[in-house]
Amino acid sequence: MIGDFSIHATDGQARLGELHTAHGIVRTPAFMPVGTVGTVKSLCPQDLRDAGSQIILGNTYHLYLRPGDELVARRGGLHRFMRWDGPILTDSGGFQVFSLSGLRKLTPDGVEFRSHIDGSKHLFTPEKVLDIQRNLGSDVMMVLDECVPYGADHAYTLKSLDLTHAWAARSRENHAPGRNGQLLFGIVQGGFFKDLRERSAEAVCSMDFEGHAIGGLSVGESTAEMYDLLAHTAPLLPAHKPRYLMGVGKPLDILEGIEHGVDMFDCVLPTRNARNGTLYTSQGQVNIKRAQYREDDEPLDPACSCYTCRNFSRAYLRHLYVAKELLSYRLNTIHNVRFFLDLAAGAREAVAHGRFEVYKARFREIFQPAEAT
């Protein structure tokens, strides 16, 4: 049944689960490639299927501005428009709006902002962002919230939290559970104050959303701060519903989240870094622009079976990057997305066999030095 979430195995707090959506089952832990404007940059839907993608993410703010959610609706929704037949999660656009800083104004009703494209004025209310996501036809919708900036004091964060909770309540009232086959997730905020995280979890989880997200992390804090707050917040969320850590992160960040019982992740890191020449492999990070790869005939990652690693050498990948060829974006992204999807798939297998701690330790040994810099 749509919305059902079942847990099939645990290893400590790590969980192996399944979330049923209108467009298929998502096995968790799951990584969601980011398709901001209806495309995962440089990849086509077949690339995503070949890489093992179960679910992808789209962005409400960007799709609302261009090409417009009503245009997408007239073409049968986002699945049909972009020819992706698997599940789609859409965020509320709140993070993008609040990142506009001087171009937006917060009100009890919602948030007024000016488009980064043409300066036109718009208003996002909790109800409006759900209308947009209904037009897009996503399987999982997110409520409107405010992501407070890192360093915000307790008083500001509390004021923001009260507004976020009011918006969440309006969102729940506007969208009955399972309406149109679309699930609605609430978002726990609270900045970097544990008492406010507890307050937010209690308030949001009382509204009976189909899943819950942890927002407001990876916004400039140290890794230690993020892990501490993650460890405190994740157990506050209901164990019988999916948990989603928004916008995080690096391979070790994802494994840390899984260790604390998080089920779903998204991040632009694999695609953005691919375009910048930073690639993730079973041997650690590779900066493909370096001269050391100029005559390296080995595959990027001998342990990877993606299209890029099966067919091309490091020397060729370096050549494409240095020459600024568009194929560089595509081949690098194919590999990085596959790496992150394999990371999640490996975690699922490790949890199933009670070996998650060993699995995580292996990646810590590979990536800790690179990610500590």
Rank of each mutant, 00 (worst) to 15 (best):
P67Q: 06
G3C: 05
R170E: 11
Y227V: 02
N276P: 04
G215P: 08
K241H: 04
W167L: 10
Y293A: 01
M207P: 06
W84D: 11
L341E: 06
D109Q: 15
H165A: 04
E365A: 15
V322L: 15
I288K: 03
A155E: 15
F185M: 07
G58C: 14
Y64Q: 14
L71C: 00
A213D: 03
T28G: 02
D208H: 13
A155M: 02
W84I: 10
A291Q: 11
L183I: 05
A201V: 08
I117T: 08
I132M: 14
N180M: 01
D208C: 06
S101F: 00
C267Q: 11
T60K: 10
R114A: 12
T107R: 15
Q285I: 13
G76S: 05
G38S: 11
A176W: 00
Q182T: 05
F124L: 13
A323W: 00
A303M: 11
V129I: 15
N311L: 09
H353R: 14
G181C: 06
G354I: 04
D266P: 09
A347P: 10
I132R: 04
V204M: 10
G277P: 12
H165I: 14
A213R: 03
P251I: 06
L136P: 05
H154E: 14
A274G: 13
T107Y: 11
A372Q: 13
A291C: 02
S305R: 14
R66L: 09
K324H: 15
T223I: 10
M264S: 06
L269N: 00
F356T: 03
T90M: 10
F265D: 05
E225S: 06
D301H: 07
L252G: 03
Q285C: 07
R83K: 14
N59W: 09
S171Y: 09
E202Y: 00
M226I: 05
M207R: 12
G68H: 08
V148E: 11
D297H: 08
A323M: 10
N276T: 07
V286E: 06
A370N: 03
Y156A: 14
G93L: 11
L130H: 08
A203G: 03
G76K: 03
R80M: 03
K121M: 11
V140W: 04
G52K: 08
V37H: 04
L144T: 11
L320E: 11
A14K: 04
L100K: 07
G261M: 01
V262Y: 01
D301M: 09
V219C: 09
P149A: 13
A152M: 12
N287C: 01
R114C: 13
F113D: 07
F98E: 08
T107H: 09
L158E: 15
G94Y: 09
P29I: 02
S282P: 01
Y150W: 10
S101W: 04
Q283S: 14
Q368E: 15
S101T: 11
A361W: 06
F81G: 04
E365N: 09
I334L: 15
I55Q: 03
G38D: 06
